[in-house]
C-alpha cells in the first residue's frame, strides 16, 4: 500500500521539546512563525531575537540564527542587527511584561524609526515566567500574585493597549491583533504573520502582530477554561483586527 505524506513538522523549529506549560499558546505561535519563515523561504537568512520571560529559551526552538536580548531590549537589539544586515529578516519574540512594561521605550522608538523588523508580541495579561505577577496588560479586577485583591485602576492604572497605542505612530507600517483560541483564528493569525514578514521583505518598515494568549497555570484555570476566558474577558478589552496598514494599495498582490 502506498502511503502519502500529508503533514510533517515545520523545518522552522528544531527538534527540542518546548519548555512551555500545558495549555499555553506559545507552542501554536512558535509553529505559525516557524511555518511562515519556512514557507517564505526566509529561514536560512533570518535572525530572531529572544526576549526575557516564558519565551526566553526560544533560541533553542527556532531553527534560524538567534540572539537572546536583555529584558525589554529586543527591539533595540533587532535595530542593531538590522542596521548592519539590512537584507536579512529580523524578528523579535516578546511577551507583555517584556514589551509593554520594561521594554516600552524600545518598541515605541523602533516603531517610530520604522525599523524594518517584525515584532511578535504575545499578550497573556500576566508575568508567567516569574510566577504570575501583575503585568501592564492585566485586566481590571484580575487577580495575580501582586494584585491579590484584583487589579485596581486607582492604584495601577488601566491595562495598556499596545497595538492601539503604536497605531498612533506614523512609522508603524503594519499592526494587527490576532488570537489563536480556535482553528479559524489560528488560520487568520498565520495570515497576519505572513503579512508582517511580507512587509519586512518589501522593506516597508515596522510590523507587529499582537497575539492574545493564555496562561492556564498562573490564571489558575484549565486550558479550555483559559481559552474561554481569553475570548470572554480579554478580547472585549483587546479587540482583534488590523490597527494599522500603511502598505501601499496593490502591495498585497506580490
Amino acid at each position: 500500500m502506498k502511503t502519502k505524506r500529508v503533514y510533517e513538522p515545520t523545518k522552522g523549529l528544531t527538534e527540542r521539546a518546548l519548555s512551555y506549560c500545558p495549555g499555553c499558546t506559545h507552542g501554536i505561535i512558535h509553529k505559525l512563525v516557524a511555518e511562515v519563515l519556512e514557507e517564505q523561504g526566509l529561514l536560512g537568512e533570518t535572525i530572531g531575537v529572544a526576549s526575557v520571560g516564558c519565551s526566553v529559551m526560544n533560541y533553542e526552538f527556532f531553527n534560524c540564527d538567534m540572539q537572546q536580548a536583555p529584558h525589554g531590549r529586543a527591539p533595540a537589539v533587532a535595530t542593531g542587527i538590522k542596521r548592519v544586515k539590512p537584507d536579512k529578516t529580523v524578528f523579535t519574540y516578546q511577551g507583555d511584561g517584556d514589551l509593554a512594561s520594561i521594554g516600552m521605550a524600545e518598541v515605541v522608538h523602533s516603531a517610530h524609526r520604522s525599523e524594518n523588523i517584525t515584532v511578535i508580541f504575545v499578550n497573556n495579561a500576566i508575568y508567567g515566567m516569574t510566577g504570575g505577577q501583575m503585568a501592564p496588560t492585566t485586566l481590571i479586577g484580575q487577580k495575580t500574585s501582586t494584585s491579590p485583591e484584583g487589579r485596581n485602576q486607582l492604584t495601577t492604572g488601566l491595562p495598556i493597549r499596545v497595538s492601539e497605542m503604536l497605531a498612533t505612530i506614523p512609522g508603524a507600517t503594519y499592526l494587527e491583533r490576532v488570537s489563536v483560541h480556535d482553528p479559524k483564528h489560528v488560520r487568520l493569525a498565520k495570515k497576519a504573520i505572513q503579512k508582517a514578514f511580507d512587509v519586512q521583505t518589501k522593506k516597508q518598515g515596522f510590523s507587529m502582530i499582537e497575539f492574545i494568549s493564555t496562561c492556564p497555570v498562573n490564571w489558575g484555570m484549565t486550558p479550555t477554561d483559559s481559552l474561554a476566558w481569553a475570548v470572554d474577558s480579554m478580547i472585549p478589552y483587546y479587540p482583534l483586527g488590523v490597527y494599522k496598514d500603511a502598505t501601499k494599495p496593490g502591495d498585497d498582490d506580490a
Binding site: 535595530t79 542593531g80 548592519v84
Partner: peptide
C-alpha cells in the same frame, strides 16, 4: 540602554 543593546545586536551579527 537602547544604544548599548543596539551595539550588542550589531556585534552579535559580526559587525
Amino acid at each position: 540602554v537602547a544604544a548599548i543593546n543596539m551595539v550588542y545586536g550589531a556585534a552579535g551579527a559580526g559587525a
